[in-house]
Simulated scan of single mutants.
Amino acid sequence: MTDPHLDHLVYAVPDLLLGVADFAARTGVTPAAGGRHPGGTANYLVSFGDTSYLEIIGPDPEAEDGLQRSVFDLETLSEPRLITWAVHPTDLDKSVRQAREHGYDPGDVEPLSRRTPDGTLLEWRLTRRDDSAPVRPVPFLIDWGGTTHPAASGLPRLGLAAFSAVHPEPSALRRDLTALGVELDIAEGPEIALRAVLDTPLGQVTLA
């Protein structure tokens, strides 16, 4: 079961160019350069359709030495990891209010932006919650506003066959997801993890 409001999955890698090359070798699909973020990260993208995609994010190889890279704890990441995901609600601000009323605080809404390789400025808003966990199974919320959704910009494409979570306390995770109005298959396990099964030209590939 994949939530109909799925926006994107975030696959973090310690070395961006090596991570992209490995992904291309495993799937037969070469991700497209997405752009550079303020703060020293950059990404590559693969579409699941017109409204959802996979983001491969890592330290920007062109960033100045010593630039802080606190996003998703990339400075301590030692191996690729499916680290979080995003949903695009119909009304972001309303969803934040309703989640808080139901006992889950998704964090404050902040504006962000990045430039594509051709110089186009993309702007969006998302919820940012203080969370030091290495994997975050509760999604953040995103609103692209008037910006063309990245998935609809001619990205290389593959299929998302399944997306799920593993959690030691499934009921606690379901409670938070319900507060956000989000659906996700959950299995009980000793450690928190996200898993995506991709349909690729080379067969099914699992990211975790």
Rank of each mutant, 00 (worst) to 15 (best):
F163H: 07
H102Q: 14
A42M: 09
A165K: 05
V135T: 12
G159C: 02
Y53T: 01
V10I: 08
R115F: 02
P201Q: 10
A33R: 00
R36A: 02
G40R: 09
A187Q: 13
D176L: 09
T206I: 13
S153Y: 00
A187C: 07
I142S: 01
M1W: 02
R114T: 00
L16I: 09
Y44N: 07
P170F: 00
P170N: 07
L82I: 13
E188S: 15
F72N: 12
L6M: 02
G107N: 10
T178C: 12
L6N: 07
P111C: 09
G203Q: 12
L112P: 06
D105E: 10
P59F: 01
P117S: 13
W124H: 05
L9F: 06
R26I: 13
R175T: 03
G154A: 12
L158W: 11
L173P: 08
H88V: 08
D105Q: 11
V138L: 05
G49M: 05
R175P: 01
T51G: 01
E123Y: 00
S70M: 06
L177M: 14
L207G: 11
L16N: 09
V197Y: 02
E64H: 10
D91P: 08
P61Q: 09
D185C: 05
G28M: 12
F140K: 04
E75R: 09
G40N: 10
R81T: 09
E110W: 12
T41W: 00
L77C: 10
Q204W: 07
G145W: 11
G19K: 06
D105V: 08
P4F: 03
V205H: 11
P80A: 11
T120M: 04
R115I: 03
I83E: 07
L177C: 06
G58V: 03
G189H: 06
G159M: 05
V71F: 05
L141Q: 04
D60A: 01
A152F: 03
G103Y: 14
D185G: 11
S52W: 00
L141M: 12
I192S: 06
D131C: 11
T178Q: 13
L122T: 00
V13F: 03
T90R: 15
A152V: 01
A25S: 15
L121P: 02
D50N: 13
G58R: 03
D60G: 00
F72E: 08
S52A: 11
P190T: 05
L74A: 04
R136F: 04
A162S: 12
R26F: 04
P38L: 04
A21Q: 14
P190E: 13
R69Y: 00
K94I: 14
E62P: 02
W124D: 00
V87F: 04
T27S: 13
D143E: 14
E79Q: 14
I57M: 00
R129N: 11
V96F: 10
L202I: 09
W144L: 12
T120I: 11
E110G: 11
V46E: 02
T116H: 07
V29D: 12
H167M: 02
